[in-house]
Nucleic acid binder design. Sequence first.
RNA 1: GCGCCUGUAGCUCAGUUGGAUAGAGCAACGGACUUCUAAUCCGUAGGUCAGAGGUUCGAAUCCUCUCAGGCGUACCA
Length: 540
Amino acid sequence: MPRLHEGHNNTKRWHRREKRRPSEPGETMKEILRDLIRTGLESCFADGTLVSAQVPDIVIEKPAHEGHGDFATNIAMSMARSEKKAPKAIADILVRHLSSQDGIFDVQVEFVSANPTGPLHIGHGRGAATGDAVASVLSAAGFDVYREYYINDAGNQMFTLGNSIYLRYLELFGRPIEFPENCYQGDYIKDIARDAIARYGDRYIGSKEEEAVPFFSKFGGDIILKGIEDDLKDFGITFDNWYSEQTLFDTGKVGNALDMMKEKGLVYESEGALWFKTTRFGDDKDRVVVRSNGATTYFASDIAYHYEKFGRGFDWVVDVWGADHHGYIPRLKGVVEGLDRDPEDLKIILVQLVSLMRDGVPVAMSTRSGEFVTLKEVADEVGRDAARFFFLMRRSDSQLDFDLELAKRQSTDNPVYYVQYAHARICSIFENAREKGIELPADTTGISLEKLATNEEMAIIKMLNTFPEIVAGSALNFEPHRITYFLQELAGQFHSFYNRNRVIGEDYEMSVARLFLLKCTAQTLKNALTILGISAPERM
RNA sequence: GCGCCUGUAGCUCAGUUGGAUAGAGCAACGGACUUCUAAUCCGUAGGUCAGAGGUUCGAAUCCUCUCAGGCGUACCA
């Protein structure tokens, strides 16, 4: 509470504070709203619709009634005297000025972004589950969230893809080929080659390589991308936008971005190549953006892409990467600084490797040899809910052992079912209550909650109250695993309560009070599960 | 070599941003179903928070060094 009055000249203080770890999660939404109201008022003063030209203390609180939204402010009341206007009139003016603004924080979360050169494997699955949950928890914390997938459909990995398919294509016609090691080895390449034959026959058999390879790049890339999209959809993940790297070139955005960096003196020529001065931003060495052979590097696209992202007006841009890309952070932060943005506006979440196990024994995996385990296989085997839960069970920057047998097991070892079971159990109690003619009244305000007094009940109530803070903390730290832990704890509190107390009994008021408590519990369980993209079954 | 991440119970991991006696699950052991789902619960046991210094009234948490593991150090993506 004291923090509410600590100081009012702290615009955006909270997200500039420390790396990616702003504090006071419970206050953050309030601070955002306070900033929003303050700027709204200032614009009212600026255009003369309000006259007092003094921003009073802005107090944000939780409304007494649920139906009144999540937050409330008495600002219109407190300004009524100095403005000589009815509070309602002041509120209307303020609201108009608020809506003319940008609204709440816009956050873009870019995740998965796997190259369309092969199906998603289990590692991508963790990135997908993490990115989606981060997006959802940000959304639950009140941010406007935009999910995006960046398609790396330019550059020489697409050439390699086309070449791989082309060679398999020739092979299927009995042509002698040598299949290089750096080509994609998986069987899916052969499948795509067969698809090409089914559709185009031997049309490309006599073609020159320079014509055939680009064709197969496009043909294969489209099929693979469609497969990725389907796998993600089956996994419960959809994007607001799929952004093609190639379009950055087609629309000249790469060139524009480089020109802009050149004007700022951040890009220079040396040894026939074009370099970005990333050392100015703490990188070990400067990085090449255009090679001496004229080809741009991946970094060049990324400069353009991030330039473009921030240009779209996002307040924060969140990138979810495999941890093996961590060396890339300083140079991209440098790019953001080069755009005259606070590098802290770019958040990078690193997702560590997944080791696939079966009953404690590692399952061999290697992308190169093609014997990787796909996300689809894992999700098909253990189920979508279990897969998601397991991906989100650890902090994303620590390595994860994913045991297929454990994830499948429907027993006490398996935390997914433990949590879902709590929800199903509560639903079952409600069904039972209905049969006995006990129902929660539509208006719950009359329920005598003082009946709830046992240790188990108090523990649950306390936990339910912390949920908003858990969500805020999880969102601001980009740590969805906090939700996972919360779920296990809340489910545990419920199971503990269940085993010691009867919900439906002689005492009608007690029954109703407990039903109400359980209704809140079930709702919270469901909300938390939904954030993680996991279902809340009513029956198990 | 340099940089980043990790090191907490036998195993897998949390630890609310520096607060009181370090927690959970699994594994082990002992209990609880005539009652709303036993996919559950209760209890017992298990710790030099890798190690050594330092800052602080207070450190698993911050700083320095050492050790161990992982990753990165391209005119690849």
